[in-house]
Simulated assay, not measured.
Amino acid sequence: MTSWLRDLSVSAVVAGFVAVLVGFTSSVAIVFQAAQALGATPAQTSSWMWALGLGMGVTSLGLSLWSRQPVLTAWSTPGAALIAATSGIPMAEAIGAFLVCAALIILFGTTGWFERLMDRIPLAVASALLAGVLARFGLDAVLTVKTAPLLVLSMAAAYLLGKRLWPRYAVPGVLLVGVAVAAGQGRLHWGAVEWAWAQPVWTTPAFSVAALIGVALPLFLVTMASQNLPGVAAQRASGYRAPVSRSITVTGLASLLLAPFGGYAFNLAAITAAICMGPEAHADPRRRYLAACAAGVFYIAVGLAGGAVVGLLVAFPRELVAAIAGLALLGTIAGGLSAALKEEKHRDAAILTFLVTLSGLNLLGIGSAFWGVVAGSVALLVQHLRSR
């Protein structure tokens, strides 16, 4: 008890809040679309937010406290996009598919198959993958200058000044400046807030071949390749060696328990986790786990309060969220690129991984993070054959 209280800091709590803010506002609309594609009622949609918030919160809090490392989980964003694109699958059959997907995640976690695969990926490729995933947020932050120049430039100035005067609290300062400028411009939209507790709604699962082929297997593949793979890469590129197999197993168990309520798939986070693993969370890497713990607490609050907290998060203008994400991730992007290009023998593979990942390429329903690793691995293989 006293140990984690002694490690607690304002910067860690703010990093946790920023991670949740970025995670929710960047993809909550896709989750709503996924629920609606399955014909969810308003009560079922609220239950989805309850299940997802609770699942992410409990797993993030539990894994981070247990390992004393920043382990942040998230919902499967590409999985939500996949579900949103389905048609003709009833809610009950979709829930059955979620359970099958969860069972597959547990299988790959308990057997250690996924961890053995990750052990074969060099640090340079993992670092390039992380930099490629996060660089998109840096570019988005720059592009928002076109639509909200005063807001974004004020936040950038606050970041540079904060890094010079009080580096540990630079990101909290940026958040405060952003909220103040947005409020002054009348861009904080509090009208969407609905003050009500979320209620879980049970849906009895049903199983069908169509849902198995059309939802369960694709959901499993995109969750592992587009989410868990960069999630582990983010940990290792930041210098952490959290127990991969156990973490994957825990996310699978959470999916299994919460699927009937709408918790369709949980996985290790990459982008939001990087916010909690960077120097902005805390100068001491051993104390950054509390940033992920703080994010876990915020996730639980979002789950319990349902629409109210989601409404509060969505009230922030898009440019504010993009700017805070890009600025908070600058140090991690720079560190990833530095580690990726450090060794000359891995440089070609690393830059290929970075460019393919950054491109946003999507083939066969699988995102660019997976194809970036494929490109880097092929480059390493060719290099190895040439040297032999």
Rank of each mutant, 00 (worst) to 15 (best):
P78E: 12
A35S: 15
V297T: 11
A37P: 08
M224V: 06
A92K: 06
N228R: 10
L290W: 05
M118E: 01
S387G: 12
T2S: 11
L327K: 02
D119W: 06
Q44W: 12
V374R: 06
G96E: 00
L257M: 14
A141T: 05
W75E: 01
R68G: 08
T110I: 15
V152I: 12
V314E: 02
Y264N: 02
S47W: 09
S226H: 12
A254P: 12
V232I: 15
S46N: 10
T77S: 14
P243Q: 06
V142F: 10
I106V: 15
G307W: 02
A273G: 11
L355M: 14
D7Q: 09
L221G: 13
G214H: 02
R120Y: 06
R287S: 11
V142M: 14
P90I: 03
A35I: 13
L256N: 04
G55E: 02
H346M: 09
P149N: 01
I366V: 15
L150S: 13
I121H: 05
K163Y: 08
V152E: 10
G53A: 11
I351C: 11
A102Q: 05
D140S: 07
A274P: 07
Q199G: 04
L104Y: 09
M118F: 08
V309N: 02
I275W: 01
P260F: 08
V174F: 06
T204F: 04
V152W: 11
S9Y: 00
M277G: 02
R246E: 00
G16S: 11
G263L: 09
A301L: 05
A80E: 08
G367A: 05
L268I: 15
G132I: 05
G311R: 01
L330C: 14
G178R: 00
L150N: 12
A180K: 11
L175Y: 03
A92E: 15
G252P: 06
A170H: 00
I333L: 10
N267D: 07
A350R: 03
T111L: 04
I333T: 02
K163Q: 14
V373H: 01
C276A: 13
G62E: 12
T59L: 14
E194S: 15
W371S: 01
A206H: 13
G278I: 12
G239W: 01
L380G: 05
L327D: 01
Q199T: 13
T77V: 12
L381S: 04
L320P: 03
T77M: 13
R68T: 07
A225Y: 06
Q383V: 07
T223Q: 07
T249N: 13
A315V: 12
L8F: 10
A124I: 04
L312N: 06
G186N: 13
S60G: 10
